[in-house]
């Protein structure tokens, strides 16, 4: 489908102008189950800033990753200068992400799985997936008793991800999260959509929770990356950054959580294919 950029915005200057296109494309992909290529025509646009490219395209890369972007986004009817801005901005962002993730991968994630057959897929897939070996995952022991070895692993890790696939394991997870929070670890819960997640309010307000389903991998990806992005970007309108980023180290840790979650969700997708 061809989308005419000038139908969506009249200004091509700021990142917020760009987000009008970026958000439209997210809805477009969602409504087409991530199967259709979006072709954006810049006919009639004679000037664009690199900031505009951030909101329109780099935002999509943050949500869906490079591969999806390369496969599903095409630009037509651009002027030479706009093509140059698009190519250089996007290319340098690919390179930047590669470098950034190298730094991220020097960190360690503690992953609390719940002992169910489904969650053990995560562990197996992570071990099998060569790419994931670049990020160090420490798992809790197979038995669900929270003992000293697991505590040591949480202390050693930089961030904490908990996976919930069945209600009976919630209590053990809560115990582990409480321990992680004592050490100021940033925490993310990946919870299967069908599970009713009853957890104490103090935890619900402190950790990030992303619900996943078994339907679409890209939906899961978008959902968790959107969550991370919102955490990294304080609400500038209201100056509310109490729950958001305080400094560069926070951004690195939120990104680590996001990268870990994406790997786990990819592992789940691979498992489903089998």
């Amino acid at each position: 489908m061809t989308i005419l950029a000038t139908d969506l915005t009249k200004s091509f200057l700021s990142g917020d102008d760009g987000l009008k296109i970026g958000r439209y494309l997210v809805d477009f992909f969602k409504s087409n189950q991530y199967n259709e290529v979006a072709t954006i025509s810049f006919y009639g646009v004679d000037f664009m800033t690199p900031s505009f490219v951030n909101g329109a395209f780099l935002y999509l890369i943050d949500l869906f990753g490079e591969e999806f972007f390369k496969k599903n986004v095409k630009v037509i009817q651009a002027t030479n200068s706009i093509a140059q801005i698009l190519r250089s901005s996007i290319q340098s962002y690919f390179e930047y992400r590669k470098e950034f993730f190298k730094n991220v991968k020097t960190n360690t994630i503690y992953c609390a799985i719940d002992g169910s057959a489904e969650s053990s897929h995560f562990r197996r897939a992570i071990y099998e997936n060569t790419q994931s070996q670049e990020i160090r995952f420490l798992f809790n022991p197979d038995d669900t008793i929270f003992e000293q070895n697991a505590k040591n692993n949480i202390i050693k890790a930089d961030v904490f991800i908990g996976i919930i696939t069945a209600t009976q394991f919630i209590a053990t997870l809560v115990e582990q999260i409480n321990f992680a929070l004592q050490y100021n670890k940033k925490c993310l819960i990946l919870c299967k959509e069908s599970i009713e997640l009853h957890i104490p309010t103090n935890i619900r307000n402190t950790v990030m929770i992303s619900y996943y389903n078994n339907r679409s991998y890209y939906d899961r990806l978008r959902s968790v990356n959107e969550l991370i992005l919102n955490k990294k970007v304080p609400n500038l309108q209201t100056q509310d950054n109490s729950q958001g980023t305080k400094n560069a180290n926070d951004v690195l840790l939120w990104t680590l959580l996001g990268a870990g979650a994406v790997l786990l969700l990819s592992a789940l997708a691979d498992e489903q294919k089998k």
């Binding site: 990142g15 987000l19 690199p50 962002y93 990294k232 970007v233």
Partner: peptide
């Protein structure tokens, strides 16, 4: 940080 601003 990110979203519509990338520090460029």
């Amino acid at each position: 940080s990110t979203k519509s601003n990338q520090g460029r």
